[in-house]
Simulated scan of single mutants.
Amino acid sequence: MQTKGNGPSLRVVTTAMMAFVGVAAFTALSVEDLAGLTADERANLSAGLIARYVIAMAIGGALAGWLFASLFGRRGVLGLVLALLGGLFATMIAGLFGSAFAMLPDLVANGFSMGDLIGIGFGLAVLPLGIASQLFLAAGWLALVIIAQIWARRIRMVRREA
């Protein structure tokens, strides 16, 4: 499933782009939250926990990009709508899987509880709601999804010509 000239496949592009979207959204929302903390609260914050969440959001975004790759690169307005839906689904799944992956070490160490399930489930909505609440983040998310759509469209066109 390689493109002409040994370029990346459609699935590779969407996987990478959605991993980047997951990390970018989480990082942007975290930076805003960290700015509201006092110096003592920041000192008590675990850098390892933040790193674990960043890695987990990348894994979740990559998995979601791989799952929803077929929604990207289609022609016309319908293709753009499908890409936006794919981006939304990928963002939601990135949050869900990201929360699950990030909480996994704690679940293994402490056991599973209903509160953990709620926290993981909340991951489904936290990135889309956080993005929707801020115009700058929404514009950045939209730009990244459109870039993924254009790149995927180009791959589909080259593959069709080959």
Results as ranks from 00 to 15, higher is better:
residue 74 R to Q: 10
residue 90 A to T: 01
residue 130 G to N: 10
residue 59 I to E: 02
residue 137 L to C: 00
residue 3 T to D: 07
residue 124 L to W: 13
residue 42 R to W: 00
residue 118 I to G: 12
residue 46 S to N: 11
residue 126 V to E: 06
residue 115 G to S: 05
residue 58 A to D: 08
residue 55 I to H: 08
residue 61 G to N: 03
residue 20 F to E: 02
residue 58 A to R: 03
residue 37 L to C: 10
residue 17 M to W: 11
residue 56 A to D: 02
residue 43 A to V: 15
residue 75 R to K: 15
residue 137 L to Y: 08
residue 122 F to W: 07
residue 144 L to S: 15
residue 74 R to I: 11
residue 23 V to H: 04
residue 49 L to P: 04
residue 148 A to L: 08
residue 84 L to N: 05
residue 32 E to H: 11
residue 95 G to A: 13
residue 128 P to W: 03
residue 138 A to W: 01
residue 148 A to P: 07
residue 46 S to D: 13
residue 32 E to R: 14
residue 51 A to C: 07
residue 20 F to K: 03
residue 162 A to M: 08
residue 61 G to I: 01
residue 115 G to A: 09
residue 134 Q to A: 14
residue 55 I to M: 14
residue 78 L to W: 09
residue 117 L to T: 05
residue 82 L to T: 12
residue 61 G to H: 04
residue 98 G to D: 01
residue 142 L to G: 13
residue 49 L to A: 13
residue 38 T to A: 15
residue 68 F to M: 09
residue 72 F to R: 05
residue 79 G to K: 05
residue 77 V to T: 12
residue 87 G to N: 09
residue 123 G to F: 02
residue 45 L to V: 12
residue 27 T to A: 15
residue 128 P to A: 02
residue 1 M to R: 08
residue 89 F to Y: 11
residue 126 V to R: 12
residue 67 L to M: 05
residue 150 I to A: 12
residue 42 R to M: 11
residue 127 L to G: 04
residue 85 L to D: 00
residue 14 T to M: 06
residue 67 L to Y: 00
residue 47 A to T: 15
residue 84 L to I: 15
residue 62 A to N: 10
residue 131 I to G: 01
residue 57 M to H: 14
residue 70 S to H: 13
residue 73 G to N: 05
residue 81 V to E: 02
residue 47 A to E: 08
residue 61 G to Q: 06
residue 138 A to H: 01
residue 27 T to M: 14
residue 153 R to D: 04
residue 10 L to D: 02
residue 79 G to H: 05
residue 96 L to Q: 01
residue 3 T to I: 13
residue 47 A to H: 12
residue 125 A to E: 02
residue 107 L to N: 04
residue 10 L to Y: 04
residue 39 A to M: 04
residue 30 S to Q: 14
residue 16 A to S: 15
residue 31 V to D: 07
residue 4 K to A: 06
residue 127 L to M: 04
residue 141 W to Y: 14
residue 136 F to D: 12
residue 125 A to K: 01
residue 26 F to W: 08
residue 77 V to D: 06
residue 80 L to S: 10
residue 124 L to A: 13
residue 52 R to F: 08
residue 130 G to F: 06
residue 106 D to I: 11
residue 129 L to Y: 11
